[in-house]
Design a protein around this nucleic acid. Structure first.
Lengths: 102, 102
DNA sequence: TGTATATATCGATATATTTCGATATATCAT
DNA sequence: ATGATATATCGAAATATATCGATATATACA
């Protein structure tokens, strides 16, 4: 069960269009991004998201970091790259919480 | 089917704790507010929400107006009073949209 | 050990949101 | 009409968020 604070964080995270867009892209990496060295198993690396976003590298990095803090995303460093992916469990729980409590 | 713009408005509306709290209060007016002249059938009047909120009258009024613009609330003037109530259809549709598209 | 590449952090600025008090408007009661 | 009550709007100040460029850190490779 998600804390109220976490719920609040997630709602705020979603209140930004750039972050919502990134979250959508990460649903279907094969469709949204070009091939990566190690495939999309561990997620999509920051530079790909950056390339697609039209935002600065620092802005993208901070959006990703924020979504990770909320639990919406998980990240894994693999050498020089950091791969971000959706945390489906958290996303599902958030959606259920909204259904039940809103 | 809700437009993307409306979805965006609603998420932003919910990104504020005072507005979320008001939305919760309006689920069970009998429990949250003192009796009103005409009962709670048409909703709860601004002054009651104001009294409970700890915010200024103008702030409460603007939160309510914003939630009405998004569709989350509906309002009805009855003499000097304006009654606000949840728009359950919109709230339900929003929750479903989140479930399906997040 | 350098140098290149990927990502994160910092500091500054621009924009958006929240909140308030003052005031306007709308309705009611006398 | 006048005064009282309820709500909305306006303008300003405070706070939060988004964004950027510059720079720091982390890893890879020659």
């Amino acid at each position: 069960m998600m804390t109220d604070e976490n719920l609040e964080q997630i709602i705020k995270a979603l209140a930004n269009p750039a972050r919502r867009e990134i979250l959508q892209w990460l649903k279907q990496p094969e469709q949204e991004f070009t091939e990566q060295p190690n495939g999309f198993e561990q997620g999509v690396c920051v530079s790909q998201i950056f390339a697609k976003s039209g935002l600065s590298q620092s802005t993208v990095s901070s959006h990703l970091a924020l979504m990770q803090r909320t639990g919406l995303l998980a990240s894994q460093r693999r050498g020089q790259w950091v791969y971000y992916q959706r945390n489906e469990a958290v996303i599902r729980e958030f959606a259920e919480q909204i259904q039940q409590t809103l």
